[in-house]
Simulated scan of single mutants.
Amino acid sequence: MTGLVAAPPGADGAAAAPPETLTQVELVWIEKHTEHWIRFGRELREQVLDRRRRILFFPPGATFALVRWAANEHGTVLSRLDIVCTVARGAPCQTVPTVTPGGEILLRVNGWPKVERLLQLIDAIEGAGIDPAEVSPDHWRHVHNRLAAGETPRSYTPARHRAFLLRREIGA
């Protein structure tokens, strides 16, 4: 049986948005074979397809981190982490496997060492009391570029976050 699960308490009126206006992320969990999960992000709804598959629905402008891992009899064949900002239906976007219609890819890393490093950076942001889903998109792009160049990204501090929130508030 499939069913929609309501948004968490305190979610705004966007939870009533029709599913066709939302970005859908299909998650699969087949233990030790294919594992997809959301590291951070706030979905509006969840649809359980079966015990191994579910779909999360995100509103336009939401940021989330999608982790995809797969293995076969020889070991790990895929380790990937994408940080995606959802877009409105019909807007130009980049394709991401399991994400419909796609989104703006803010960061993409491949390979377990880079994925693990990024998970540590996300943990550090949370440790500073900041929700990673609220982090400046420019910071995620910065992290992507620095990791791609083999460099250490700047820390995302509460001061940087306050500056981002103020800039967003004035519309700059």
Rank of each mutant, 00 (worst) to 15 (best):
W29Y: 15
A70V: 01
T86C: 09
L147F: 07
P18Q: 09
I105G: 06
A7H: 01
V77S: 09
P158I: 06
L166V: 08
V115T: 11
L106E: 10
R160H: 14
W112D: 09
I30T: 08
T63N: 00
T157C: 11
V5S: 02
H139I: 07
R51D: 12
E46L: 15
E104W: 11
L121T: 05
L22G: 06
W37E: 15
L81P: 04
G111I: 08
R108F: 05
P60D: 00
A172R: 11
A11G: 02
V96P: 09
G3L: 04
A62V: 00
T2V: 12
L27P: 07
T23E: 02
G90E: 13
A128S: 14
V84E: 03
I125G: 02
L56T: 00
R52F: 14
H36T: 13
V109H: 10
G75I: 10
D50M: 08
G102I: 13
V77C: 02
P153D: 07
I122A: 09
H139E: 10
F64I: 01
A124W: 07
E43K: 01
R39N: 10
T63S: 05
I38A: 04
V109K: 10
V67N: 07
D50S: 08
A133G: 13
L49P: 00
V84P: 04
A15M: 05
A16G: 09
P137K: 03
R162E: 13
H144Y: 14
A133M: 04
I170V: 15
G41D: 03
G150W: 10
